[in-house]
Amino acid sequence: METLQFAYDNLSLIGSRALEHIAIVSVAVSIAVLTGVPIGLAITQSKRAADFVLYLASMLITIPSIALFGLMIPLLSPIGYGIGYVPAVIAVILYSQLPIIRNTYTAIADVDPALREAGIGMGMSPLQRLRQVEIPLAMPVIMAGIRTAVVMNIGVTAIAAYIGAGGLGTFISRGISQTDPRQLITGAVAVSILAIAVDLFLAFVQKLLTPKGLATGVAA
């Protein structure tokens, strides 16, 4: 009850913290899409490159977020960005690489070889094949990777409050340091709701981007 009262009294603060949160995740994941999807496409050309890149991305994701934030303080301090928004965005970019690269790679590699052969045999250039056949067919799986990255990093961003990046994590860190369960619970619940809401929104986008001929439930 006390917590609800607290949340109600601080609605506008929760709102602005949520916007900070979204700003970090959306900017970082957008950049990660711009790097991860091309990398995922590129590594379909070589099994060895794919193994190496996926291994590297898997290693990145095993670094605990708090340690990654800690590492970035000395690395980014010389250019004046040791704490705050920039290291948070960089961390989220790094964590997003694995789901995005892996899903892009798998989706493209899984395109039916018969379709690839048909495309080549009818005289499509590699880029035409990618644009007309492979990417449309891979779209649902690539989008699933982006959703995974977003949801995961809404959690990671909560911890970025410790390096002064703001966001809903601020409630959690303050709740812990001030032993105030109201702030703690408010923060935790807000992060969860944000994750679910964004995931539902992206599921809707995924549906829009899925080619009609692939969608299940098309009337036969």
Partner: peptide
Amino acid sequence: PIQLRRSIGYVIQQIGLFPNKT
């Protein structure tokens, strides 16, 4: 080769229709 293939009709065993196209 790309021009060549466009000038030759090609049918494969697995049919290979593009599911994302009408």
